[in-house]
Amino acid sequence: MSTGERPPGANVAALRNARGWSQVKLARKANVSLSLLSKVEVGDRTLTHATAAALAKAMGLTVAEVLGRAPVLRDDEQSLSHLRSALRDYDAPDGQPAVAQQIAAEVARVGRYRDGFEVRALLKQLPGLLRQATTHAYAVNTADAWMALAEVYSAVYWVAARHRWMDMAELAVTRQRWAVEQKANPLGGAVAARDRAGAYLNGGDYEGGLALVDRAIVDAEAALSGPERAFAVGVLNLRGMTLAGRVGDKMEGRREAERHIASAWQVAEELGAEWNRHSMLFGTKNTATHVLATRLDLGMPRDALLIADDIDAALTGLTPTRVAATRINIARARLDVGDRDGALESLSAAYEAAPQMAKLNPMGREVLRVVSSLHLRSNPTLLRLAKLSGVKLQPHVQG
C-alpha cells in the first residue's frame, strides 16, 4: 500500500516500522508522549499538525511525507509527466503565442476547476496552458501576461500541495515568484508570497513561513492602496494565522495567531465584500473559516465549535473546497470533544460539498479512520464514506 492510501496516523506507524524503530524510540526523539503516539498509530486519536511536524523532524521527513502523498491514477500519469516537462521549460517559449483573451479564458477555467476541486481536469489542462502562457508572456512582455503565467504556476502549486508532491510544489512557487518579478506587480507579489509561505507550511517550517508572511505584508502595505491593499494583506494574514496555529510553542503560536486574526478582521471590514482574485478568496466569511481552523490547531476545539455554531451563514457562497475543508475541521473539533456522531455528520457534509477534496485531504482521512475505530457498531454513513475514500475500516465496524 502506498503512503497516500494510508491515513496519516497509520502512515506514521508504517514509516516508524520501516526504520526499525520502536514507539518508545520515536516518541523520545520527537518529544511526544508514548501514549499519544500509540493512540495515533492505532486510530484512537487524530494526528494533529503539530504532532505531525514533531514526528517528521524526528524522522528527517517533511510534514507532507508524514501525512502521505496522494496516489496518482494510471490515467493521470501522462498528464503529470507532461506537467513536469513544462515546468522544466520555463525559459523556452514554444510555438505561436496565443491571444490574450484566450489565455485569460483558460486561466479563468483554471480558477473554476480549483474552486470545484476538479483535480483531474486541472491536471490535464495545466501542461498545455503552462506552455501557452509562457510563450505569450515572452511575446508581449506585459505585467498582465506575466501575472497570467504566475497564476498558472499558482495552480500547479495548488495541485502539487494537495497531493503532497512537495518537490513540484516548491518548484512551482519559485517559478511563480520569478514570473511576477518580470514586471512590477505588487499584488502578484503578495499572492506569490502567500503560496510560497504554503510551501513552508507543508514543509513544517512554521516560523520561517511566518517571517516570510510578515515581510510580504510590509511590502504590500507600502506598495498597494485601497481594496487591493486590503485584499493582499488579508490573504497573507489568513496564511499567517494558519502557520501560527501550528507552531510548536503554543503560547507563541497563540500570540502570533491573534495578531494575524485581528489584522485579517480589520482589512476584511475595509474590503466590505468577499473578493475572489487570482484564485484567492478573502473577506469576512473566509476569515471566519480560517479562525475556526486556527483555534482548532491551537488545541482549542471548544472555541472552534463556538464559531461553528454560526458557520452555515459564513459558508454560504464560498467555494466547495472551502466549505469541505471547514466541515472537516468541524469534524475534527467534534471528535476532540468526544462527539463521534457529530464528527461523522460533519465529515459526511464535507463529502457532499467536495467529494474529491474530502477524499484527498489527509485530515479528512484521519478523522474517518479515528471515527471508525471509536464506533462500536456498523454505521451506514461510515461504511459509505469508507467506500468513497478508500479508507479501510477497523474490523469490528464491519460487523
Rank of each mutant, 00 (worst) to 15 (best):
M251T: 10
D341K: 07
V323I: 10
L243N: 12
L243E: 08
I330E: 07
R340N: 07
W265Y: 14
G245Q: 07
L298N: 01
G283T: 12
A349W: 00
F282A: 13
H290V: 09
D312A: 15
R340Q: 09
N361E: 13
G317Q: 07
A304E: 11
N329A: 08
E345N: 06
S346K: 06
D339S: 07
T321L: 11
A354C: 01
A358I: 06
T289F: 04
A343E: 01
R340W: 02
Q266Y: 14
E252D: 09
L305N: 09
G342L: 01
G253K: 03
H290C: 06
A353N: 01
G272W: 10
R246A: 14
P355V: 03
K285N: 15
S279Y: 07
D336M: 12
G248P: 00
A262L: 13
G317K: 03
D339N: 10
A293M: 08
L296E: 01
D297A: 10
G364K: 05
E252V: 12
A288E: 10
A293W: 05
R332C: 09
R255Q: 13
V247K: 02
P362V: 10
L281H: 14
R334M: 06
E258N: 12
A313F: 11
M280F: 10
A244M: 09
A353S: 13
N276I: 10
K285P: 04
S348R: 14
S263Q: 15
A331W: 01
Q266M: 15
A333K: 03
M357P: 00
G272S: 11
R277K: 13
N286F: 03
T316Q: 11
A354K: 02
D341C: 00
M251R: 08
N361W: 12
M357R: 07
P362M: 11
G248E: 13
A288W: 04
R332K: 12
P301D: 15
R246T: 07
G245A: 09
E258T: 08
